[in-house]
Amino acid sequence: MANKIPVVEYSLCAACGVCVTACPFSCLELSKVGIDRYNKVYPVLASPGTCTGCGICAKACPVEVITMQVLAGVP
């Protein structure tokens, strides 16, 4: 497991799915609902175990709402 993982600021996320496609390991998936009244589906880190912390998803996000955050307890 990586020492950093992507964290999405959902209030600013466009639910566009760019990050999901960008991840080379398909770690992210669109499955989080219940955030807005339209029932849009937002990305979640579904496979944290395979995430390398590479930050490709964060770089790809067109609206820069993914930050790579340090996981507590992981060196």
Binding site: C16, V18, Y38, N39, V41
Partner: peptide, 14 residues
């Protein structure tokens, strides 16, 4: 009967 929205890749409209 719409369970959730669907966006094509890269879409902010949905």
């Amino acid at each position: 009967v719409e369970k959730q929205k669907y966006h094509c890749y890269g879409c902010a409209i949905g």
